[in-house]
């Protein structure tokens, strides 16, 4: 397990000068993922904030091999690259050990890229898929996605007199991926960098497809001051909205249990996108939100105990 001093000595694979917003959670996440690798990398990124802001022609912020791909197909692209690498290695044309990482946002993973992801996991490629989840289509201007939580304001689920934000609960993608029976699945947060880095290290050493779902707070879409990005990620973990856990060969392990489980309201009240939920007429949504979080958390605790 690398310490910060060791990580700081490594080559920084994502340079400054990319055009992601000030305080962007995605770039913090991606930097931590890239720092965890000890191998030459080939990365692919599905269309999203990260892709369009880090590779504006004629500039690229990536210091590793990088493939620009369409919204739905990053898992397919990287699995193809991995298959080509294996073929070349078999023929003796490549000797170096290399690793393959596909990055997708929540739109490109939960919704649009889901079939490509599912296919790649099923085919058993030796690749890591990292989903940086900022809970809406932030790149095109904050539209709802399958990852947007209940009651959140977005431009396609505006909060008004009739509808109080998004009416549905979010999709539990990590559980969907666990159902593919792949060797390693995890959920992480950039606020707990040590946990994140060790999960990436573990995933890259695993022989087979691996998946990590990482929460990446977005100051523009969540409506909070940009200096609070890490605080937001931390509160999501402490309120058990975003539990940190891993599933290794079907065995659940809880990596972090908050000393005191905070009410989810503490996380919601700091975000402008949930502002309307604090009106008296929307009290029921807040209660439903808390009940959903509690249910998922208890489910997870039971799974961690059982396996």
């Amino acid at each position: 397990m690398a310490s910060l001093r060791e990580l700081a000595k490594k080559k920084n694979l994502l340079t400054g000068g990319h055009r992601l917003c000030a305080g962007c959670g995605a770039s913090i996440t991606i930097r931590q993922v890239l720092l965890a690798s000890n191998y030459p990398l080939v990365c692919g990124v599905a269309t999203g904030c990260l892709e369009v802001s880090t590779t504006i022609y004629p500039y690229t912020a990536w210091r590793c091999s990088y493939i620009h791909t369409a919204f739905e197909s990053v898992a397919a692209t990287i699995s193809g690259v991995e298959a080509a690498y294996r073929a070349l290695k078999k023929k003796g044309k490549i000797e170096r050990e290399m690793k393959f990482i596909a990055f997708g946002g929540d739109g490109g993973t939960y919704d649009i890229g889901f079939q490509a992801l599912s296919g790649a996991l099923e085919r058993g490629h030796r690749m890591l898929y990292v989903c940086y989840d900022n809970q809406a289509y932030m790149n095109t201007g904050i539209q709802r996605s399958g990852a947007t939580p209940l009651g959140a304001w977005t431009t396609t689920t505006p909060a008004g007199k009739v509808i109080p934000g998004k009416p549905n609960w979010r999709k539990d993608l990590t559980a969907c991926v666990v159902a593919h029976n792949i060797p390693y699945v995890a959920q992480a947060s950039p606020s707990h960098w040590k946990d994140l880095v060790s999960k990436v290290e573990k995933a890259l050493e695993t022989d087979g497809p691996t998946f990590i779902n990482i929460l990446a707070p977005c100051p523009r879409g969540w409506r909070y001051p940009e200096s609070k990005t890490i605080k937001m990620a931390k509160l999501a973990v402490d309120s058990c909205f975003w539990p940190l856990y891993e599933v290794e060969e079907g065995k659940y392990k809880l990596n972090y249990q908050p000393k005191e489980k905070k009410p989810v309201v503490e996380w919601l009240q700091l975000q402008g996108r949930f502002k309307h939920l604090f009106k008296p007429e929307n009290q029921a949504i807040l209660e439903k939100f808390q009940a959903n979080v509690d249910k998922a958390w208890e489910n997870l605790l039971a799974l961690a105990q059982k396996t």
Binding site: G23, I28, T229
Partner: peptide, 10 residues
């Protein structure tokens, strides 16, 4: 080095 690991712009 907390600032280093949390800086979005390297």
């Amino acid at each position: 080095l907390f600032c280093f690991i949390y800086c979005p712009d390297s």
